[in-house]
Design a protein around this nucleic acid. Structure first.
Lengths: 153, 153
DNA sequence: TTCGCTGCAAACCATTTGCACCCAT
DNA sequence: ATGGGTGCAAATGGTTTGCAGCGAA
């Protein structure tokens, strides 16, 4: 679970985004955003909705989708699409720092890593082409150690 | 258009894959694979199907999907999912070498780049985790020079 | 003669949208 | 009181699949 200070920072950024875009703050959004921010990992809309169902059964899946979209536009969530057909969202901390992913195509587990050098190189590539870089996605697909040992087809 | 020698190599690899998996060679697949291999860029199933419609109007979209899946499994096509909701496939040459992408979120244009250093670093990351690396995906999202000049939010 | 392949249409299914009511501003 | 927000159900739309007939091996 992220540090409280990080969550506060995020809530503030989220609030600013709402105001700046003439959007309203509602209880549902508050609940969704809170749960999202304090959940580690890659959440699909459906998973997030299930989590909320326990304590807030009346919140609709559509609202979860709509709120996740807002979070992504506000720069608080990164949308990732691995290979299971779902869009997954991930909160990546107050400094906008994000890690990359290494996905096992055998069992579906996702590990994360950060690599400063890669980060630097990609920034250079963007500059070389006069792109203002906004986001990036880096995923390695492979077979994890367990799946290799388990033997595969 | 790729060099003929590259296409031949690919056709051979494709044929081997069919045999090895008890699959059959058919005229439709032949046509689809040929068109795919000699088309540069990122093709969606629908785009490829449209191309074929001109000269081979009876080929069904489902067959295009099925054939693209085979090509991907045979290692001849890389599946990429940018942000328009389509799966796009790309033929990346006989050496399995693939480039990465830098996508403009303004106009949708996709530029390509290769970076040996990044390639090396990612391989190290995979090894460090005992992953047998199969594929990777690296995409940078940003705003291209023209879209920056054109201004816009 | 097998058994995979094809086109078609129907099915899938994650995501989006229309609508009538609700509520923050 | 505005006009955006919500839940629900229906619509969307890219992709997959069932099926009956076809064709490669």
């Amino acid at each position: 679970m992220p540090k409280p200070s990080a969550i506060n920072h995020a809530m503030q950024k989220y609030g600013e985004y709402l105001t700046r875009h003439g959007l309203k703050s509602t209880v549902q959004r508050e609940i969704i955003v809170n749960e999202f921010l304090r959940t580690k990992g890659h959440l699909s809309a459906d998973e997030l909705h299930s989590r909320l169902r326990v304590s807030h059964s009346s919140i609709g899946l559509a609202t979860v989708y709509r709120t996740l979209k807002i979070l992504a536009e506000a720069g608080l969530a990164h949308e990732r699409r691995f290979k299971d057909g779902y869009s997954r969202y991930e909160y990546t901390g107050p400094d906008g720092m994000h890690h990359d992913h290494i996905v096992c195509v055998g069992c579906g587990q996702v590990e994360e890593f950060e690599n400063k050098e890669i980060e630097t190189l990609q920034r250079q590539e963007a500059e070389k082409r006069h792109f203002k870089m906004l986001d990036h996605k880096f995923e390695i697909y492979g077979i994890c150690r367990q799946c290799q040992e388990r033997g595969g087809e």
